[in-house]
Design a protein around this nucleic acid. Sequence first.
DNA 1: TATTGTTATACTCTATAACTATA
DNA 2: TATAGTTATAGAGTATAACAATA
Lengths: 152, 152
Amino acid sequence: MLTIVSNKEHDVADSSLTSRLRLATVRLNRRLRAQRSSSSVTLTQLSALFCLYKCGPLTPGELAAKEVVQPPSMTRVIAALEELGYVSRRPHPSDGRQAIVEITEEGSAHILADISAREAWLDKRLAELSDVDRELLSRAAEIIDRMASHQD
Amino acid sequence: MLTIVSNKEHDVADSSLTSRLRLATVRLNRRLRAQRSSSSVTLTQLSALFCLYKCGPLTPGELAAKEVVQPPSMTRVIAALEELGYVSRRPHPSDGRQAIVEITEEGSAHILADISAREAWLDKRLAELSDVDRELLSRAAEIIDRMASHQD
DNA sequence: TATTGTTATACTCTATAACTATA
DNA sequence: TATAGTTATAGAGTATAACAATA
């Protein structure tokens, strides 16, 4: 087992954790993207739609911040979702520059089935694990999400 | 907290684990890709190079299998690394169709610095965690990698 | 002048299909 | 005929820079 030497604060025995977590994340992400299924939305679009489903109406800027992407990236995602009829856009009541993006009834109706189809592969992998491992991943997911949402 | 209803084998209280792990993975992956630094290699190239560094010489097919990507994807990665002088290619001794790809001295000399620069952001996030959380992520990384390497 | 959002452009990552060369 | 690898092509994902509209 290779150990990368580094001069970081935390324990040296831990020093390849960064590499291992990076590799694991990149690989799982690949597998997740490869699960296309019959769902019409892409993985990125699904994430944004799910965010609107959870949080309610948001401005494009708020949505970009929550998903930790730059505004131009979110512009494209919203445009695609709008074309599919899964989100609607209306003027902001007090600021003409902004808009309010909201999930539509059709978007709400499809999202659970879309997510379920999209996640079928991962769900199967998780079902193969022990309860202990699933509990561990549950806590890991929270920590990872917190790190990923860190404001630099 | 939203709970997605599903009819899967494992506990219903667990039912949003799939979604949470997917979201966490996608977001961390975005952050990792955004860390460009001065490193000349991309995240994908770095993964392949690291694999050659760990495993020794491999054929393109073996490398693609280890990284869980399709052969044409690996072809491009190898070509880019070869152009940078980080890997070399030589004929397979007994099979004219295959080739042996190996990390060069220059590749070996640069990889630790490249990885370190690339991972600086994640390393900082991990350093902010408690020992308990890092230990948890260490085990999670192993489980995730195992799931991601699953042969369908 | 600062902020919000969009348009234009470009690069990374990855896949499938079709092809070539060798076994 | 089967396998290893490459080329061609296309689509997803994302960013930076430049711009328009509004505050």
